[in-house]
Design a protein around this nucleic acid. Structure first.
Lengths: 240, 240
DNA sequence: GCAAAAGTGTTCTATGTACACCCATGT
DNA sequence: ACATGGGTGTACATAGAACACTTTTGC
């Protein structure tokens, strides 16, 4: 098979699916939509849609991200995860889905705008507890892969800062790691690690508000120019 | 856009492309085919082909791997890399390519069987030195991404063993790292690292042949059951 | 004997781990 | 005053870096 001669080969539909993560009330959460039509009516699915004719896959993902979240100036991070293309993953047509992962700070509650009226934030624990019959298509697999991507990616990149709105305190950033990993890294070591990496965060002159029960005014930081964390931030005991 | 309603959406062709790496004469090498037809006639391209109607993407990749290498019992490793889908990456049709990476031990010289008659091994240095006009489509980008995947993957997995035929000596395994990274890890530290990870390699009772100039008979090993290397094997000074 | 390569040991240093502790502030 | 949480210090353990060195064999 010398490549790229379509011949009698069938064409398929290509979609993008999005696993959009954010942190709400200290819990890692995922945007999901309730399907209003068959197949899988009433099931939860990842937001997504078709790639348009003149559109790059990445463009399509950004467009869907804006449509589904209702945010036009999205400040977070978006990257491709991988593609899923089992022949009968959609019972109607052959559809290859290019899944993406997005890291978002404080997105608004999904509104009734566009057609994402049924979009809602679910914590990853809630999603994991769902019966497999209530998750559409192979999206449970995609979610599991996306979760692992997020958990590992904040180990060796600075992308954790994409989960907090600027400016932020180190305690807030640490709570990001706690939410994503399920366990908080050691306080002192975390501070040394983050501040020891040139350009991970940059301090501002301001100080934040003290906590409700009192305490010092924490220093506020902004995202720095660094992208890699090396050596990586290690998750607490990944069970040896 | 509520997902998965094709409506008037156009369908596209989906292919798999393969970056098949092996080590030949101590150099990391890549299988490429010379295109015999337009577009990009005479240019080098990654082997690949269309995904068949009833075929999973991964199945298609395995099938193409067998066809292009002429090996039916492939002993190495194959994984998805990512998808490429710019609208005009192929001038004739809209084609989304799901690229894969394969790690192979000692594959035979590509034969004239099937239609891979023009397939040849190129060292990655040779490929990097090619003018961009002689590499078809966006395959130079795919190759760069695939190379980085291989280089990083042998840091934190045991996949380096997939590049050597069993049984192998630790010196041979070390030469894999040297070939992929361009620099050899320290001899003593390398041995301690590999042998210190339970199940990375398992010793056999046999001893290999001494080197041409003489020397002790090295112990022979087989692949173990471990898949992760943690903490990872670090590449020598990645330029701070 | 000598060269070549396998295999071992040793010291130094960087980094992660696990804490204890101090300090500033709101209630 | 005291609880709360930001911020710092320190002793220990682990593991990588950079060597030197010994051993086994073919020529």
């Amino acid at each position: 098979m010398t490549a790229y001669d379509p011949g009698a080969h069938p064409s398929v539909f290509v979609t993008v699916d999005l696993a959009i993560f954010t942190i709400r009330d200290g819990a890692l959460s995922l945007l999901m939509v309730e399907r209003g039509e068959e197949p899988f009516r009433g099931c939860l699915a990842l937001p997504g849609g078709f790639v348009e004719p003149e559109e790059d896959i990445e463009q399509a993902a950004w467009r869907e991200l804006a449509e589904e979240t209702g945010v036009e100036r999205f400040s977070g991070h978006l990257e491709q995860l991988r593609s899923y293309g089992a022949p009968r993953r959609d019972p109607r047509h052959r559809i290859v889905s290019v899944a993406h992962v997005a890291f978002a700070p404080n997105l608004p509650e999904p509104h009734a705008g566009s057609d994402a009226a049924t979009a809602l934030w679910w914590t990853v624990d809630e999603v994991a507890a769902l019966p497999s019959s209530s998750v559409a298509f192979d999206h449970a697999t995609i979610i599991a892969d996306a979760l692992e991507r997020v958990r590992s990616k904040i180990e060796y990149t600075t992308l954790a800062t994409q989960f907090v709105p600027e400016p932020f305190t180190l305690a807030e950033l640490r709570r990001v790691y706690a939410a994503v990993w399920g366990e908080a890294p050691d306080l002192g070591n975390f501070r040394r690690k983050v501040l020891g990496i040139e350009g991970f965060v940059v301090a501002t002159e301001e100080s934040g508000a003290a906590a409700s029960g009192g305490g010092p005014r924490p220093t506020l930081y902004r995202r720095g120019w660094a992208t890699a964390v090396q050596p990586p931030m290690l998750r607490p005991r990944p069970a040896s």
